[in-house]
Design a protein around this nucleic acid. Structure first.
Lengths: 190, 190
DNA sequence: GTTAGCATGTAAGGAGTTACATGATTTT
DNA sequence: AAAATCATGTAACTCCTTACATGCTAAC
């Protein structure tokens, strides 16, 4: 049980990929990765860690007092380490460029680990995200065009602002895609 | 029971303020108001409507076939109408400029009904939202400054993009606030 | 000496979604 | 005659948060 929103799993696995960490530290880094909004709570994190241990993707080890591998000698921390299975799972999760990865949250999490993502998956995620944003753009433009005049000044400005935000995101994605294509010399006949 | 996130309540009450509507239509309009993301499902909407009826804020009336007040004669729709108590409740909800109203979602819902919101409340909501965004800005700048060099190209560009988005929102809010102050001639001695 | 931050957890509950169930009407 | 859209609802379940419980260490 516990579907546990693949993005949380991806974030934990991805962060532990760099180095073993304990829960508290993990949470702080996650807040940077997932953005200050959408910070995960301990009530979510610790059960999720427990579940990952049960599934054999990570191991837990109590760092009792001495010989802490991390500096600043606190005490009684439980350090989580990625297992080989966990690495495999992470590899599969980052390479998954399916529709779920175009979602706002999932896309953020994916980008945070683009450094460890195969180039083809990166490209497909970027392209998918962009077409998702273009759909959103079309929907917004339609409702803007449909509702002119019958809507008040405030609603109009809000919708306009939302629209421009999405346009800006599309441009940003296009830049990333261009750069991606540039650093990708040629697929077959280079 | 059922705390039912004031924003859903505000949205329903606000839309029914304009005209009586049935659930299906309500949901479509809500999608425009709350944005295409964050579209409410029927599994959420209908129980919420039932609860509002129980609380005496709206009344339900089955429009059986003939004499539909809305055009396009379908059948068996349940039309919800705002009561006097519902109007009062809406009045209090829109005028509530507390910290909850600076939240992403709540702020959107509030702005959608700014046309019916007293000027002082509008100003306080705008100001509160802006300072909320400025806090977010400070947090992002800190983590940008802290993590330079040790972070990869992708993460950097993502964080940069997020930062610019928040900066843009602050400018937009500042414009709204300026306009608001301009059209507000004088409080007492006009 | 008390506030703030470090550190780990659990139980209860909140706010929603998905999937299901049903059926009429309109469009293709 | 099939598919899409209109229309209303319920039960189960998901994912997450809040509040609680505990205790240690560092800074002010």
């Amino acid at each position: 049980m516990a579907k546990r929103s693949d993005v949380l799993e991806l974030a934990i696995l991805g962060l532990l990929h760099d180095a073993p960490l304990h829960g508290y530290e993990l949470r702080k880094r996650m807040t940077s990765v997932l953005g200050p909004i959408r910070a995960i709570s301990y009530g979510s994190l610790y059960p999720a860690l427990k579940e990952l241990v049960d599934r054999g993707l990570i191991t837990e080890e109590a760092t009792s007092d001495q010989a802490a591998p991390v500096m600043s000698g606190k005490r009684a921390r439980i350090v989580y380490t990625l297992t080989a299975d966990g690495k495999d799972r992470f590899e599969r999760l980052v390479a998954d460029a399916g529709p779920d990865s175009w979602d706002d949250e999932a896309f953020n999490a994916h980008m945070a680990f683009f450094g460890r993502t195969p180039a083809e998956a990166r490209m497909r995620i970027l392209l998918g995200r962009r077409s998702r944003m273009e759909e959103r753009l079309a929907a917004l433009r339609t409702s803007l065009a449909r509702g002119t005049e019958r809507v008040d000044e405030y609603t109009l400005r809000m919708q306009q602002h939302g629209l421009e935000g999405v346009e800006r995101e599309v441009r940003w994605l296009t830049d990333l895609i261009t750069d991606e294509a540039g650093s990708q010399p040629r697929k077959d006949k280079s």
